[in-house]
């Protein structure tokens, strides 16, 4: 971060750098408001638990009032009937505020193409990061959170969709090696009785 804070110096650049400094400060201090409506909530609980340790990103403290929070997690299917409530919650949050769309249903309605379901929360409120998955794994959630922090640091408010990433090269082989070490001396696992 040193170059961001120290660099520049030409006229007109300072404002940008100051925003970058603000963004850098903000991105490690996210107070989340979980708007949990459906089965994605289970995966959200897993991601928010100690095993995945969301506290590493400074985003572990849930506030159960939108007026005390700046990151809205929309977790699960939102029905047409809930949409006014969701918009009202968003409007109660103080600037600067960000929205994470957790899972396919919140992002685009998922497979609910019917009379009851809002086809994506972006019909009601602006969204910063979409995390695809049904539900997304905690790793994907943390990836989405890191993408959001990256965006906050860059002062970028355009919507972003989390990329579906493959395992890095060599990791599958390493996993296979670990599996072989662990299973050494044990009977092989088969599907037969």
């Amino acid at each position: 971060m040193g170059d961001v804070i120290m660099g520049g110096g030409e006229s007109g650049v300072f404002t940008t750098k100051f925003d970058a400094l603000l963004g850098w400060a903000r991105k490690f201090s996210l107070f989340q408001y979980p708007f949990v409506t459906a089965c994605c909530g289970m995966e959200f609980m897993a991601a928010a638990g100690p095993k995945y340790d969301i506290a590493r990103f400074g985003a572990e403290a849930p506030r159960f009032s939108p007026r005390q929070s700046d990151l809205l997690w929309v977790v699960g299917t939102v029905s047409q009937r809930q949409a006014p409530a969701l918009r009202r919650i968003y409007e109660q949050m103080l600037e600067p505020k960000w929205v994470m769309s957790f899972g396919t249903c919140a992002s685009c309605g998922g497979f609910y193409d019917n009379y009851a379901t809002l086809p994506g929360i972006d019909k009601a409120i602006p969204v910063d990061v979409y995390i695809p998955g049904c539900p997304p794994r905690p790793e994907a959630v943390l990836d989405g959170l890191m993408l959001l922090m990256d965006k906050i640091g860059r002062c970028d408010r355009t919507p972003a969709v989390l990329k579906n990433t493959a395992l890095p090269e060599g990791v599958p082989d390493k996993l296979e090696q670990l599996y072989q070490i662990r299973m050494k001396g044990k009977a092989p696992v088969t599907n037969e009785e």
Binding site: A20, L147, D150, D156, V161, L162
Partner: peptide, 12 residues
């Protein structure tokens, strides 16, 4: 915007 990469662009 699908698959926005990290550090996509300088501050704009």
């Amino acid at each position: 915007d699908e698959g926005m990469p990290f550090d996509r662009s300088p501050v704009d």
